[in-house]
């Protein structure tokens, strides 16, 4: 069952098309990664789901219902450009923003206490935002986003501005929220976090979807019969015997052992990995053998470059 279903969303600005008939399905309880180069239309789509701006055409369903203002309280949104009132106290501000999302003051206070204790920031309650560092303010922003326990959480570049330690904390929190049943949609440039966290990705480029699917499916479909192996240098010559079905794509000396070579091979379609492995074992010592599965980063670059051509 999908929590968000967007059908043929189109949004044009005066001079350019930001979204050209985009459709996405965000499965309940999953982490959905929205990827794409700058200016691809990610933020526009996120703003439309947040009902900040209206689409020119197309419709969005939230939990089966047509998206309406009443759904606002079930969405938590952390925009890319973070911001809080600089001269307002942290606690007061968090209470205000929580109430805008429809929480009662009492409820907000209890939940804030939980999160402030969890992040060990209870002493910040009476501080003004301008007294906090950027990273500290980001934590407050994160809490404010998730406080009302929305069904859908939208993060636009959630890790930008966090140092690695805090980025890790936030990552774990996001995964924790998913485990509790929240659905998460986030856009990012950080491919390693996509790899680690996302169940499903959608790559938007130049206002169109160029790739969409479960990470596992995408990776499977991008397998290219490539294998990474490490052999002794003197055995390299033997690869010549296999040239009918194996081509060498790259050849580098091993970082640790000068007498070993790291190779990337591609096999033709008519053979299976077992055949390759058997043949390699006849060459001599085989130190390493693994199928090379393209990283999301490589897939991303490949697709974006393709559209540039």
């Amino acid at each position: 069952m999908n929590l968000i279903q967007a059908k043929n969303i189109t949004k044009k600005y005066q001079t350019k098309t930001a979204l050209d008939s985009i459709s996405i399905d965000v499965e309940r309880g999953s982490i959905f990664g929205l990827l794409g180069p700058n200016g691809a239309g990610k933020t526009t789509l996120i703003r439309i789901i947040n009902q900040i701006i209206a689409a020119d055409s197309g419709e969005i369903f939230f939990d089966g219902d047509k998206l309406q203002p009443k759904h606002i309280s079930q969405i938590g949104y952390m925009p890319e450009e973070r911001g809080l009132y600089k001269n307002m106290k942290v606690g007061e501000q968090a209470l205000y923003l929580a109430q805008l999302k429809g929480m009662s003051k009492q409820d907000a206070r209890t939940k804030l206490k939980y999160w402030f204790d969890k992040f060990e920031i209870s002493t910040w309650w009476d501080k003004k935002i301008q007294e906090l560092s950027k990273g500290m303010a980001q934590k407050v922003q994160f809490i404010v986003t998730v406080l009302h326990e929305p069904k859908l959480l939208i993060f636009d570049e959630p890790f930008s501005g966090f140092d690695p330690v805090n980025a890790e904390i936030i990552k774990d929190e996001i995964i924790g929220l998913k485990d509790k049943g929240a659905t998460i949609l986030f856009s990012t440039h950080r491919m390693e976090s996509v790899e680690e966290m996302c169940d499903h990705i959608c790559l938007i480029d130049d206002s169109k979807i160029v790739l969409d699917g479960k990470i596992s499916d995408i990776k499977r479909s991008h397998r290219d019969n490539q294998y990474e192996i490490t052999i002794n240098e003197e055995d390299f010559i033997g690869l010549d015997n296999l040239k009918d079905f194996v081509s060498v794509l790259s050849n580098k000396p091993n970082r640790n052992f000068k007498d070993q070579l790291d190779l990337t091979l591609r096999i033709t379609n008519n053979i299976v990995p077992q055949d390759l492995l058997k043949s390699l074992m006849t060459l001599g010592e085989l130190h390493h053998f693994t199928e090379k599965i393209p990283s999301i980063n490589e897939i991303f670059i490949k697709h974006v470059e393709k559209s540039f051509e």
Binding site: R47, N50, Q51, I52, P69, I72, I75, Y77, M78, P79, E81, R82, G83, L84, Y85, K86, L97, L100, K101, Q141, V144
Partner: peptide, 17 residues
Amino acid sequence: IEEKTNRIIEVIISSVK
């Protein structure tokens, strides 16, 4: 202007009209 330069505006208008 303050809300705009603080960038809090986007958070607020995701909750209110």
